[in-house]
Nucleic acid binder design. Structure first.
Lengths: 332, 332
DNA sequence: CAGTTTTGTGGAAGCGCTCCCACAGACACA
DNA sequence: TGTGTCTGTGGGAGCGCTTCCACAAAACTG
């Protein structure tokens, strides 16, 4: 492996000049810059990242932390989209993404050790739960971090972006109410995630405002099978429901299966709305009326928030909340 | 951030002794080891990975390279399982996995630069295509690498594990022949991947041996939608087929949808077999007769092959081929 | 044209760590 | 008592890079 020294020697300049030429090139004559570039090419030189980060105290890489079981990570399009956008946005600054998938427990300990160890310059956290306490941990470590989705614990200490889940759920539930549903159930997300709690709160707010009952609630887990199972429980305990607000499209797809098996026609017997609009909602039968979860925008914004920390521009925790947008299809 | 120097000072030993105590601890007295451990604890010391790898010339991390579009990576359970097993196996040696998802083009250039740059000690490559030429590139770089699935180009230069796809496809096609199918079609994988080519070869071998025609072939892309589309073409061009060998269960699931829409009963009108058995095969209607793709074993073996390179145990490229195993369900 | 600023350059320090090597002391054996 | 082995220790070099600083030369000032 060629070193900077060899490049400098071949180019006929000092190591300092070669280094300057390679990084940005300010305060370097055109002649020297050319000579260095030529030497780099002919030697096939690549800077040693360890040596570089030893002195710069940067690693030029950022962790994307997903505290979930890998089955779920790979089954939910949410993560694919988010990872894609984050990777793209960071690539523009030549930052490499290191994906850390770790469910609570021993793996999480490894992950925290990794984050504390200085392997990365910062972290983007997504799909966090109350118990993982990642906001507290990261704030404790002092690692620049940016959360996608409001953390339930320690939110005041960290930067985050969040969709206005309460408003979104309220509005989409109102669609059900306006079309005449009088017995509206919900399948919520996990109660240890802000998206789960907030969407349930929005559903409740809409029903309260309309003077309707809010007892037909079953907790789901943001998986398709979980949605199906929750729907069965709902049908058993509340056979009279004529409207259903499901906290994610993936769960709604499962719920539609259960409704189909139970012989309920959608939307005639029961109107259904979902949440997310990440592609699945278009492909279910019938296609889902849902709320757009602007994860592309959120991911981009989360990257921006992280970069502002890395650049030292912003020091005080910022939050950015995105307004919901309804998408009407035929399920309600 | 505390340094080794501070740890050593607090423990009352030299930096050399502290370093020895932290790494393994051979040739260190129990007293010194305890003092260092206590100092590490009280200071919350973590070794600086950059400084360490500058001298050890190791990074203790390994790349998992997936040259695919991220949609496909996240839609196919194959990757989730593989990543899971690889991560677990490497964690036992305290090696961190860095996931690199890069489709051909500019992203791939970035990825190769990253691999060349010495960021990782080795690479596990999965789902490679002929055109990405990863085997040649990695052999050229001289980076220890281990492929899951035989590379189409440069296979002689690298370590790899491979299922015996030809044998597997032949045997599962024989199931169709034995149950009386006389017009057997196939939906293949991509023609630029060994799994695509070999499974088609096995299908052809079985039909040739039985003296049956081998013209009902349509190329698929290992996605569910691709399988559905391919099946429609097959039904249009060869409406008389009574048997279908699909090169992956995911594509077979798509094919079943198309068959259902065309009013063909499975297995009565047309018997169908798949490939992989990664969970999907159990959940289709009807459940698929398929071939088990031992990706857990393959991934573990690939890690072993990689570690043998990192340890310097083996220098000459090795290959490990896994025998197929039929799984009979009701689709054929 | 002397004085000032700007530009380009190289010497050298130092980032935090591992590991080679020399060495002191403990112990064993003849 | 001398010789040899083994154990534990610390000094110090050096991994490859960036960056501070001093300095010379060139380019501007009035």
């Amino acid at each position: 492996m060629p070193t900077l020294d060899e490049v400098a020697r071949l180019a006929g300049v000092s190591r300092a000049t070669a280094s300057r030429a390679i990084n940005g090139g300010s305060r370097v004559s055109a002649k020297a810059a050319d000579a260095v570039a030529e030497a780099v090419r002919s030697l096939g030189y690549t800077p040693n990242p360890a040596a570089r980060s030893l002195v710069t105290r940067r690693t030029d890489s950022v962790a994307m932390v997903i505290p979930e079981a890998d089955e779920r990570v790979f089954a939910d399009p949410f993560f694919a989209r988010t990872l894609h956008v984050v990777t793209q946005a960071l690539a523009q600054r030549d930052l490499q993404v290191v994906l850390l998938i770790a469910q609570p427990g021993q793996e999480m300990q490894r992950t925290l050790r990794y984050l504390r160890g200085g392997h990365v310059d910062g972290a983007i956290v997504v799909s966090h739960h109350r118990n993982d306490a990642l906001a507290d941990h990261l704030a404790g470590i002092g690692l620049p971090a940016s959360f996608i989705g409001r953390p339930l614990a320690g939110a005041e200490k960290v930067f985050y972006t969040d969709p206005d889940n309460v408003a979104g759920a309220r509005e989409v539930t109102n669609i059900l109410i306006e079309r005449g549903c009088r017995r509206v159930g919900t399948i919520t997300g996990p109660a240890d995630m802000s998206a789960g709690i907030d969407r349930a709160a929005g559903w409740r707010a809409a029903l309260d405002a309309a003077g309707l009952a809010t007892d037909a609630l079953v907790e789901g887990d943001f998986t398709e099978d979980g949605g199906e199972a929750a729907c069965e429980i709902l049908l058993r305990d509340h056979p009279d429901i004529d409207g259903l607000m499901v906290a994610s499209d993936l769960m709604a797809a499962g719920a539609l299966r259960a409704l189909g098996r139970a012989g309920r026609r959608v939307p005639d017997d029961i109107a259904v709305v979902g949440y997310d609009d990440l592609g699945i909602a278009e492909r279910t039968t019938p296609p889902l009326t849902t709320v757009k979860n602007p994860i592309g925008d959120m991911a981009r914004e989360a990257v921006r928030l992280l970069l502002s920390q890395l650049d030292g521009t912003t020091t005080h925790p910022l939050r950015v909340v995105f307004a919901p947008e309804l998408v009407r299809r035929t399920s309600a």
